[in-house]
């Protein structure tokens, strides 16, 4: 190691433990928060069908009907699967905000990385006179 290099402090065992726990807590918060707040499932709508109790009413042809029956379904049990549709209508504003957050995140990370990277290169290859 050369003179002038950054010498990091040694982290205590307690500090290491605390940092691990912090990250863990953050991970669980990020992944379980949407689930617990009930925000997780995307919007669903229902398709209008002629008759929910017959295969033809559900718009299924003979081949489809045979498939459903082999898989153990009746028109009644298959109906919820057949008429359920995702709702792809979305809020322009929400899309804009999301896009900004994703782009902003990458800009932030690259910008911070750049300042840190300069220091790494300076230590590794020596400082350059400008």
């Amino acid at each position: 190691m050369k003179n002038g290099d950054y010498v990091p402090p040694r982290q205590s065992a307690l500090g290491q433990f605390f940092d691990s726990m912090f990250l863990l807590a953050l991970v669980f918060a990020a992944l379980f928060a949407p689930l617990y707040l009930g925000l997780a499932s995307g919007g669903k709508t229902e398709l209008e069908v002629a008759d929910k109790t017959t295969w033809s009413g559900l718009g299924q042809n003979a081949v489809m009907q045979a498939g459903w029956e082999k898989l153990g379904y009746t028109p009644e049990t298959a109906a919820p699967l057949i008429i359920s549709r995702f709702d792809y209508s979305f809020d322009q504003l929400a899309l804009g905000v999301t896009a900004l957050v994703v782009i902003g995140y990458f800009v932030l990370v690259v910008a911070f990385s750049k300042t840190e990277y300069r220091e790494v290169i300076a230590e590794r290859f020596g400082r350059r006179d400008r």
Partner: peptide
């Protein structure tokens, strides 16, 4: 694909981004 995830799973996308932003600052 971000747009595809946004359709139906927008909340998870935001939660994930918030996580990475906080972790980055930390």
């Amino acid at each position: 694909t971000y747009f595809a995830v946004f359709l139906g799973y927008g909340t998870q996308l935001m939660a994930m981004m918030l996580f990475f932003i906080i972790a980055s600052l930390w």
